[in-house]
Design a protein around this nucleic acid. Structure first.
Length: 480
DNA sequence: GTAGGGTTAG
């Protein structure tokens, strides 16, 4: 419990220090305005000191809610265990928090404990339990089959529970099953639509996701924030600036609250659609940015090759009191790679592990191999690959092969190519690249062998292309 | 008074 009270200092403007208002309901409701774990902990400490936590039951409930929705399960549990008689709402909040935090077994165990206490589950309880069941692959009391059984016990239409099933199916990639359930529903609400749209987006079916928007409008259900976020993500993936702008206009017109997540989704959409200025404009106007917002902005400038802008943003982020996560470093390292900043890249790589305690993942190694390879430091790239704790994947070998082709390193290039043949024996692109490498180095026979293999095995090769939108129509440009 | 959602190496 003592660790809950370790309050870190916050920037002045975010300081929620409570004075005389501590004994009013305002203090408790300010918990719902908290944007970060730090802020909740700070309020928690003040509630303990002022004694409010001890005598106002609403205070503990709201604190538990705040921790649970932030998936800070250990803190939520510590509050929960001190509650004399938790009711249905409190159990639901805990079950939801456990499910969202992927503590699926614990979620179902708590559900059992709940039933044991002679409490009657409501629609929300079933929703969260079904969600836990559907995410649980192991044969406990609930895989998705058990969730289906639970659902079958309902005699009447239960929109909430069916929405949970739709999400469950989609998280397993079972799009058709989800769609059938959605189509057979008699009472679809905004959450049913947003679950389906989000599922399409997550499964890479962006065109299908965007196609649902007009259907949703026709059915007189207004898109909620979650649906808009998913739609914007799909616009970004497809590069359809026109549709993205339309969604932005819709948000302005209908005065949907511009939350951090929604604004972040807009920034990402603009950046991916080639309009980074619009994205950066929104970013600068934001009152509160979380680590994902910073990640989106840094990744955007990284793709554009503006490494120094990325470095500045990184420092600004730290000054703002945001701790970088592994995604931030992927973005920073890829910025270094695109701009050829070898020394900066090396320093960030070291700082990541020793300054911030983030163990480099395969993505980070991938960025570093790419950075060193592009710069022609192929011996360093080889050394790094050999030092990796896990097996390099085809992205890493492909990156090395590409660098070897540029810098005429036949020995390492052949090494990478052999590994690639093991991992992706049917990728024509790899043979093509190896062929180009041999041709560059004057090894005509080897190059011819590659071309022959591509032809004999009837492998497909792709060529680079990009999409650009002109007056609402999307055009594809191909290289070569 | 409880859903749902945003970032990541070639």
């Amino acid at each position: 419990m003592a660790s809950c009270l370790a309050v870190s200092p916050l920037p002045m403007e975010r300081n929620l220090l409570l004075t005389t208002s501590t004994r009013t309901p305002d203090a408790i409701s300010s918990l719902r305005m908290c944007h970060s774990f730090q802020e909740v902990k700070q309020l928690h400490a003040q509630f303990v000191v002022s004694g409010l936590l001890g005598y106002n039951p609403l205070c503990a409930r709201r604190l538990l809610e705040a921790y649970a929705t932030m998936s800070q399960i250990y803190y939520a549990v510590s509050i929960f265990e001190r509650m004399p008689s938790p009711d249905v709402f409190v159990y639901n909040t805990m079950i939801r928090g456990l499910t969202m935090g992927k503590f699926l077994h614990d979620s179902l165990l708590l559900y059992k404990e709940f039933l044991f206490g002679y409490l009657v589950p409501d629609n929300y309880t079933y929703t969260f339990v079904l969600k836990a069941c559907s995410h649980l692959k192991a044969p406990f009391e609930g895989s998705i089959h058990d969730a289906e059984r639970v659902l079958g016990e309902f005699s009447e239409e239960n929109t909430l529970a069916k929405n949970a099933m739709i999400s469950g199916y989609l998280s397993e990639g079972r799009v058709d099953k989800a769609r059938r359930m959605f189509d057979n529903m008699t009472a679809r609400d905004a959450a049913s639509w947003s679950a389906l749209i989000a599922g399409y987006t997550k499964n890479g079916m962006h065109t299908e996701a965007l196609a649902l928007f007009p259907d949703m409008m026709v059915s007189q259900i207004l898109p909620n924030e979650a649906a808009l976020v998913s739609l914007l993500s799909s616009c970004g993936q497809l590069g359809t600036l026109h549709q993205g702008r339309w969604v932005h206009g819709y948000i302005d017109k209908t005065r949907v609250l511009m939350s951090t997540k929604l604004t972040t989704a807009l920034i990402d959409m603009y950046a991916k659609c080639g309009s980074i200025e619009c994205g950066y404009g929104l970013f600068q106007k934001m009152a509160w940015r979380d680590v994902v917002t910073w990640g989106v902005m840094i990744s955007a400038f990284a793709i554009y090759g503006h490494a120094s802008k990325c470095f500045h943003l990184f420092d600004e982020m730290l000054a703002d009191g945001i701790r970088p996560n592994e995604v931030i470093f992927v973005a920073i390292l890829s910025a270094c790679s695109h701009a050829g900043c070898v020394e900066e890249g090396r320093q960030y790589f070291i700082q990541m592990e020793h300054g911030f305690g983030i163990k480099p993942s395969i993505e980070h190694y991938g960025c570093m191999v790419d950075l060193l390879g592009r710069a022609g430091l192929l011996a360093d790239a080889e050394e790094l690959i050999n030092s990796m704790p896990e097996q390099p994947n085809s992205i890493i070998w492909g990156s090395l092969l590409s660098a070897c082709r540029t810098h005429n390193d036949l020995r390492r290039g052949t090494w990478a190519f052999e590994k690639l043949m093991e991992l992706e024996p049917t990728s024509g692109d790899r043979y093509k690249l190896a062929g180009l490498m041999f041709a560059n180095a004057g090894e005509k026979e080897e190059a011819a062998k590659m071309r022959k293999m591509i032809h004999e095995k009837e492998m497909e090769t792709t060529c680079g292309s990009s999409f650009i939108e002109v007056e609402g129509a999307v055009h594809e440009f191909t290289a070569g």
